[in-house]
Design a protein around this nucleic acid. Sequence first.
DNA 1: CGAGCGATTGACAACGTTGTCCAGCCTCTA
DNA 2: TAGAGGCTGGACAACGTTGTCAATCGCTCG
Lengths: 344, 344
Amino acid sequence: MAAIARRTDHRYGNRPTMKDVAARAGVGLKTVSRVVNGEPGVTPETERRVHEAIEALGFRRNDSARVLRKGRTATVGLVLEDLADPFYGPLSRAVEEVARAHGALLINGSSAEDPDREQELALALCARRVDGLIVIPAGDDHRYLEPEIRAGVATVFVDRPAGRIDADAVLSDSFGGAREGVSHLIAHGHRRIGFVGDRPRIHTGAERLRGYRAAMAEAGLPVREEWVSLGSTSPERVNAAVRGLLTAPEPVTALFAGNNRVTVTAVRTLAAHPSPVALVGFDDIELADLLGITVVAQDAAALGRTAAERLFRRLDGAGGAPERVVLGTKLLARGSGEIPAPTG
Amino acid sequence: MAAIARRTDHRYGNRPTMKDVAARAGVGLKTVSRVVNGEPGVTPETERRVHEAIEALGFRRNDSARVLRKGRTATVGLVLEDLADPFYGPLSRAVEEVARAHGALLINGSSAEDPDREQELALALCARRVDGLIVIPAGDDHRYLEPEIRAGVATVFVDRPAGRIDADAVLSDSFGGAREGVSHLIAHGHRRIGFVGDRPRIHTGAERLRGYRAAMAEAGLPVREEWVSLGSTSPERVNAAVRGLLTAPEPVTALFAGNNRVTVTAVRTLAAHPSPVALVGFDDIELADLLGITVVAQDAAALGRTAAERLFRRLDGAGGAPERVVLGTKLLARGSGEIPAPTG
DNA sequence: CGAGCGATTGACAACGTTGTCCAGCCTCTA
DNA sequence: TAGAGGCTGGACAACGTTGTCAATCGCTCG
């Protein structure tokens, strides 16, 4: 009796607590706790009664209280750029699988490429006392995380390294991948190659640009600055940029696209262009095989998995200095990069 | 002093608490709470001292304790099928945006189409006391959620309705969309049309099949049972199914694909087929426009947004019986459905 | 000059769980 | 039959925060 209609103050539902279960089962509070947590030292008969009461009341343990008491939340946070971007879905999923294997839940949030929002999100996750944090940086200064890391929040950066702090990072070889992709175009006879990429303050954007310049330099080719277009990867901007490259006084005959969104837009723009233009894009895209689009593929799931595994190793007590892991990329030649350069 | 090196028992880090901040600032515990929460009634001078102490100690409020005290977590859970599926990324993102607008965080988990895992996840989220739950069902019996709903967890189902309980649901018009897509094929002269879809115990799978049958019946066309293939949407199974339809004694001349994954695989299989076969798929796919694939598009983001908005209306106290909202679909004719049927 | 009032502040309990520690009971043996 | 030892169960404090309430202080108003 009296387990009903307690509390009329601040709470919505009227969730039963262990105390209620104990009362109903006629046992002590701690005994219920033992049953719920599968701890030994409870008679089968008592256990049965407790289970019955749990069933009857619809009791579910309050993990907030548990966390408060135990100090660990079995939750990790993932701050990424945009879950709607097909690059991050598989990455997030891979992190989730690793977390699940370690009995942890995943909270993820999108920064929308806004450094302030990244910080707001990351700190909100810390306030919830996530055990660890995986961050795909939008900003380039992560000193705001220093107190958190000192306080024991394991932190791993993915896709781009941390800014102004020393932390674990798992990256793709943006430089090498871009260099290989551009070299592929050069090998097929192209001399005037355009580069459309992300803002250079984003690490991957800068590295891919560097790879482009390296490949051109190695081949002894000049780079005219109007061939390089950096900035937002919105369809409007990219579309305008690509058109610009194609209508310049010395138009490019090939294009390197700095990420998946650029590639998608560039393909659309090029499809409307009269003469064929070669294209290699960074990141694979669904159906690119059917469209014959050559890409430098990175393995988003592997990035996520590697980062998550490192995170849990840290949580399991692995020490040592922060490390940087770089995963290789893979050139998938499918035709679009092999379009011959116009002669003359 | 003495705020350092307390606690050596169960905790990892040594996070400062409000008590520590209070001690350092020389004020009471509650005053710190007031400052942290922006409550009125604190002298600017006191506030400054508190902020100073917070800064110096790197204090961050422990939301677990806060939640325990307040009863609300400002967190909503999203149980979906697979975050790596491009259909769910935008949906999840849309939910996140609405949650953010309401000051809430989002925890999401993938059920991997496994009903048991769906249940495990949903209940884990309830144990964390999410305020609300958005579920894309993998199973067809959700009675396990009854105690939670009674206890005040707002719950909205998306993409598929709840099984064996009465709850809010936001759906796409699978029946109408499939019927329209198949009618489109019929209007272009096809008579033998195949259907490759999901398991019929999945609501959308069953509805789309029903739409297919309705369109065929309305046109007075027979449906041979070997034209219908239901089951896993793995590439292997779909590939085999499509081949089967094309090599049957009476091969189909057109195909309706029951969801995005089926469409992608079917496109690949058909690309390797000598004669052209018409195709209409349910769900839009990135780059489908360039490949000229006709689809019945549903708006994943709108599904997520609508569901989240309903959820927060419930959380804000909206009463009334559970409702079912059905969002329309849109046929995007791009050529693949208009391939003429072979004459004779 | 005293009462009263508002503004500021802090002491204390409570949220629901788990870890510690002790009490009671039962069984087995001498 | 008494004592030892093992097993089971419960009382209590603590986790870090917020709501309640009362105390204190500096003013103003009569």
